[in-house]
Design a binder for these strands. Sequence first.
DNA 1: CTGAAAGCGCTTACAG
DNA 2: CTGAAAGCGCTTACAG
Lengths: 354, 354
Amino acid sequence: MSEPGEKRPSTIHEVARLAGVSHTTVSRYLQDKDSLKPQTRVKVEFAVKTLDYRPNLVARSMRTRRTNRLAIVLATGPHFPGRQLAAASETAHQAGYQIEIVSVEGGPKARAARIEDLARSGQVDGILALSSIDIGAASIDLKTKSLGIPIVRSESYDERLHVLGELAGAAEIGEIIEHLSSLGHRRFLHVAGDQSFASGRNRKRVYLETIERLGLESVGVYDGDWTGQSGVDAIASLPDGCGVTAVVAACDLAAVGVIRGARARGWSVPGDLSVFGWDDDEYGRYALPSLSTVAVDRESQGRDGIHRLLAEILGKPAPEPSVRSVNRLIHRESTAPPPLSADSTGADGRSEVQ
Amino acid sequence: MSEPGEKRPSTIHEVARLAGVSHTTVSRYLQDKDSLKPQTRVKVEFAVKTLDYRPNLVARSMRTRRTNRLAIVLATGPHFPGRQLAAASETAHQAGYQIEIVSVEGGPKARAARIEDLARSGQVDGILALSSIDIGAASIDLKTKSLGIPIVRSESYDERLHVLGELAGAAEIGEIIEHLSSLGHRRFLHVAGDQSFASGRNRKRVYLETIERLGLESVGVYDGDWTGQSGVDAIASLPDGCGVTAVVAACDLAAVGVIRGARARGWSVPGDLSVFGWDDDEYGRYALPSLSTVAVDRESQGRDGIHRLLAEILGKPAPEPSVRSVNRLIHRESTAPPPLSADSTGADGRSEVQ
DNA sequence: CTGAAAGCGCTTACAG
DNA sequence: CTGAAAGCGCTTACAG
């Protein structure tokens, strides 16, 4: 292991010796170069450069009881929150913090345990749980225990304000249905996301409530799992002649599956069936037909999450989100008015050739 | 900051006091419960449980000079290596290591600097750079410097063996062209990936070499950037009557763009134009037409990367990859023999309605 | 099998 | 402006 060229990193003492000062002075230089008299500063500067010295961050943390590191926990899955992360990293770096991403696996219980270990390991100053991870009830346990460091759950602006109550974080599903209704659609299907995720549950609930509120009809909810296959299966499971003309999918991938499933039954999209997704994934922009969807302001989510976490760490009041995060509907080729004969998805089937 | 309910985490000394033993004994208990005599062990066990004690990992690391943490560095981008990460995490956990994911931003220079800082911070025992990140020449600098900890670059099996020489990591491009050629295709187009990535460069090089080797024709290489738009633009840039019948895209997203671009010119896929992607993204499976592509064995990549890193850390010889990683071609609806009249992508254009 | 002592590499009062 | 001393919470020889 100790090979010839392998230098051990130099310590603050070695720098001090080379500079001819005490290690206290070197430490001071590290904290604030201007606290040294110029002549001393030059000597230390030289020694640091010569030895290419970097402070041992573990030792520093041990002494200061701070790490300047923030953990973002998430579950690796089909929907990796890359854009939230990028924005969160940038925000954290600006505040002088490093980000570490920790993926936690297993059930809610195992995940909560892992988060608690992390919180109490002394290795990070705070934890941001992206909303894509579901620690559910376990997060309440975490709250009541004292973990020593703040844990913040990233949520959408709407969820945070609780303004929309039951609609929290899925209000756009209501807008989608209203829009489709205004185009003339009356019979809907929802391909739900994994119900172990809050986002999946909320979208399903808002779907049902909006159908009810507007006096529309639902041919049912297909309990999917965010996959393309669930979209295919949802359509395949529909009885002939059900008369559905619009599908609200919980995510873009499921929506693409719905379109494929529709094609397999000879239904045209959007001729016979309108399909709405959620995510604004890049694929949907180029798909045939391109996908109507919900563009999520992931950057704000990541940014605001870090801001709230930093506020808690520093003991400041929770900040107002800089900009109201906008989850806006994007209308593309997969939605249109329903066919004149509302039963084109009925028993007689195919109204489009290939 | 110090709120009423906020307990400070307990220390090994407090456990020792409660158990009526020395903190040395508690530490010993933490390392190996069987090294204590049963009666003592019970007392310590009780104290640990009562105080819900967790060792401060920062202090432990400081003392042992090991962290049992591995960093995986990557650049956040359109192709997030979720599956490699999941496999890498699992492998690391089995070996008793925690994984931390660090995203490094900026140019190659800035990224290399960030990696060096990390390596010398004492916060991790080793670093795995997923091949999706390009530290290029900077990685050589990193090698020559002594960073104190091992850094391993994750590469595909082929890259590692250097068996294929120039074809490293992109051999499947050759297979794709051979297959398309066997179907009767003669004129090709390559939509290249970002040339600042090794994978982008290799695929382009193998494309050109294979075209040459098989005596085929290329109407050119469109220098793309992994996006769907680059696929659209590549097709739009083609002169009328160029006679191309097959497109080899550097990734699935570009391939989807190509299909959309073809449709915009009235070309049918695969009727007039065959399109091959690379990635086996889930979208391509459900797209219309579904996408022929290359399935990458990302799990093996992640697993093998960690195995090699652990071997270096422990000073063992580099392990043979458990299974030869197989990047296999998947043939779906987007490829077929060329049209009988080979100039269907020519000036007269549209051979398919809608 | 157990305890007293040293020390990992830093930072931060406290003196001067 | 600078230095000597204490200490962050652990682990690990070294004695007993």
